[in-house]
Amino acid sequence: MAITLKKGQKIDLTKGNPGLKNLKLGLGWDTNSFDSGYDYDLDVSVFMVGKSGRVERDEDFIFYNNLKHISGCVEHLGDNRTGEGDGDDEEILVSLDIIPKHIERVAVTVTIYEASERRQNFGQVNNSYVRVLNSDNEEEVLRYDLGEEFSIETAITVCEIYRHNGEWKFSAVGAGFEGGLEALCKNYGLSV
């Protein structure tokens, strides 16, 4: 049975699940009935962070224009431009055993495409979640529901998977930003 986390909680991924090497992160959301005249296009991005606390190489940023890390350790399975339907809206595959040694954290984020132009923000998004599955058997390991605490934010760091004493852990972050993808890139040390 999957564990449900709340904002700020951390859990060991590999110590309690010694065979866990391949993850699928499923992210989902719904939008409120607010009509800005545009569809909502939420995008998942992954910032692979080194010891410096920043993304050290351009290829360590995975998003809709760079879907797969050069090592194959992280792969974005594609951009869902509408979020329609049930289930996960976007998915990320993570192979823990081949993440390069210079990577200490894998930060998973969601942004709203053209949020300011479309007058959209995360106050108009609900039922947001991330779930972590063992991709070898599709068994759900944990789930983090983000709740409804966001208002004017246009970007969110949803969670982080990080190394600690030779094991991988999961942190339910839920931190919001104004300024969309550009603000996240600056936060993680990338030039836009």
Rank of each mutant, 00 (worst) to 15 (best):
D35A: 14
H76K: 03
V46D: 02
R118D: 09
Y40V: 13
G179C: 08
D30S: 15
I70E: 14
P18H: 10
E167D: 15
T154R: 06
T31E: 08
D58N: 13
I156R: 12
E160S: 12
T31W: 02
K101C: 09
L20H: 01
R54P: 00
D12E: 06
F177C: 02
V74Y: 09
D60L: 09
D97P: 07
G37L: 04
V49W: 12
D39T: 04
G189R: 01
F34L: 03
F63S: 09
L181R: 04
E160A: 06
Q9F: 07
Y113T: 09
I152T: 15
P18I: 12
F122H: 07
F34N: 10
K68R: 15
R163Q: 11
V74Q: 06
A155E: 08
I62D: 07
G72M: 11
N80S: 07
K68G: 12
R118W: 10
V130Q: 00
I99G: 05
N126F: 14
G37D: 07
E56Q: 15
R119H: 13
W168V: 02
F122T: 03
S36M: 07
S128Y: 00
G123A: 08
R163Y: 02
D88I: 04
I99H: 09
V130M: 14
E114N: 10
P100N: 12
P18F: 13
T111W: 07
L27R: 02
E117G: 13
D79M: 05
A175G: 01
Q120P: 11
L190H: 09
E90T: 12
N134Y: 00
C73Y: 11
D41H: 05
L27K: 00
R118H: 15
M1N: 10
D145F: 07
T82D: 14
P100W: 13
V192A: 07
C159H: 03
G180W: 06
S171I: 00
I156Q: 09
E167V: 03
K15W: 02
Q120E: 05
G174Q: 00
A115K: 02
F177R: 07
H102G: 02
G72T: 14
E139M: 07
V108E: 01
T14L: 05
D97C: 01
S71W: 11
E149M: 11
L5Q: 06
A175T: 14
M48P: 08
G176H: 10
Q124C: 02
V110D: 01
L133I: 01
F170M: 02
H102A: 02
S52P: 12
D41F: 03
